[in-house]
Amino acid sequence: MTAVAQAPAGAPSTTSGRRPTSRRRREALAAMLFLAPDMLGLLLFLGIPMVACLVLGFFQVDGFGGYKWIGLGNYERMFADPLFLHSLRTTLLYLVILIPGLFVVSLALALLVRQRFPLVGLVRSMLFAPNVVSLVVVALVWKFMLTDQIGVIDRILGFFGVTAPSWLGTPKWAVGSILVVTIWFAMGYYMLIFLAGLQDIPREYYEVAKLDGAGPWQTFRHITWPLLKPTSFFILLTSTVSMMTGGLDLLYVLTSGGPANSTTLIIYYIYQQAFVYGEFGYASAIGAFLVVILLIWSAALFALTRGGRFGDGDK
């Protein structure tokens, strides 16, 4: 007879080998339960509306519950609509000026508040303060300040004998005013992101550079900027998406798309078509087109910067 091998006295039994597996299952189940509320929220408030927007883009909706399949009719109408093309050009011009300006101002502020000086905490709080106030309130305050003749800014300029232009009543000044207010509102938020990236850079690098005799510009160029590239990539991506899809409250309160449609950005045009004219199908088609633009921009940014490494050759 063949002897049956006996397990050593201290060896774990076969049943004990199942314990790690069951423990991993319990941990996975607990993780799923914790994630379920967020996943449900994303599905209800993001996933389903996105699918509904894509589907509605192929229908003509009259606002009273009537749906008519028109295929690509809304998209054909979109590219033949001069107001849509105008809003698209205005949005692209707006972003070309806004994103670099917001990037530079936020980075400069982050470099400033990174320094140690009295009341630096208060300065950081004041710069971030607009982000904790409703955008509608911010827009109302700025509209009061920019009102012709009786606004705060006009009164200050008038005290020095300067005739102020119509900040919100002239196309070129209205666009400039929207840009200034947007940068003022958003710079504190992106300043904090830059500040977090700066604080992650080891201070030993700066100490070595100082011993080598490097000046402020050389230190920024060879240490700060290369190590800040992942943060810069994140800000470029999120600020573009945020500025293209947000700010409707600000536009509505300050200019309502005027004067002469000079501040009618694509997000405001979508609002007009959907909630002013009841063209929900057409508005959904424009919204789907906007999502495609953002996806192309995101993919291009990932490709050009190698996911935030900006072609450094890092692996």
Score class of each variant (00 low, 15 high):
Lys210Met: 14
Ser16Val: 02
Thr21His: 07
Leu83Arg: 13
Tyr271Thr: 04
Thr91Gln: 07
Pro130Ile: 09
Ile99Tyr: 06
Leu44Trp: 13
Pro216Ala: 15
Gly169Tyr: 11
Leu95Arg: 00
Glu279Ile: 00
Pro216Ile: 12
Phe34Ala: 08
Ala299Cys: 07
Ile286Phe: 08
Asp154Arg: 00
Arg23Leu: 00
Ala139Ile: 00
Leu140Trp: 02
Leu140Glu: 03
Arg26Cys: 06
Ile70Arg: 00
Thr91Cys: 07
Gly188Phe: 05
Lys229Ala: 11
Gln115Lys: 15
Ala28Val: 11
Arg25Asn: 09
Tyr282Lys: 01
Pro12His: 01
Tyr277Trp: 13
Val253Asp: 08
Met244Ile: 12
Tyr268Glu: 01
Thr15Lys: 04
Gly169His: 06
Leu146Ser: 02
Ala214Val: 03
Gly63Trp: 05
Leu85Ser: 08
Val136Gln: 06
Ala110Pro: 01
Lys172Arg: 12
Phe234Val: 06
Leu251Glu: 01
Arg203Ser: 15
Phe34Ile: 15
Pro230Met: 09
Leu250Ala: 07
Arg124Pro: 06
Met39Trp: 11
Val141Gln: 09
Leu43Ala: 15
Leu248Asn: 08
Ala31Thr: 13
Asn74Met: 06
Leu168Gly: 04
Ile178Gln: 07
Trp217His: 11
His222Gly: 08
Ser13Glu: 08
Met243His: 10
Leu250Trp: 03
Arg18Leu: 14
Ile270Tyr: 02
Pro230Cys: 10
Val105His: 06
Asp154Trp: 06
Ile293Asn: 04
Met243Val: 01
Val276Gly: 02
Val136Ala: 11
Leu192Gly: 06
Val181Asp: 01
Phe185His: 13
Gly308Ile: 02
Val292Pro: 04
Gly17Pro: 00
Ile178Cys: 03
Leu140Ala: 07
Pro202Leu: 05
Phe275Gly: 03
Leu40Val: 12
Ile286Gln: 09
Trp217Val: 14
Phe234Tyr: 13
Ile293Leu: 15
Ala300Asn: 10
Phe234Gln: 05
Leu236His: 02
Ala129Ile: 05
Arg116Ile: 09
Ile296Asp: 05
Val276Asp: 09
Val113Asn: 10
Ala9Arg: 14
Asn131Met: 13
Gly169Ala: 12
Gly258Arg: 07
Leu44Met: 13
Ala186His: 13
Thr91Ser: 15
Leu112Cys: 12
Leu107Ala: 12
Leu85Ile: 05
Trp142Lys: 06
Gly176Trp: 07
Val276Ile: 13
Met39Asn: 01
Leu95Gln: 13
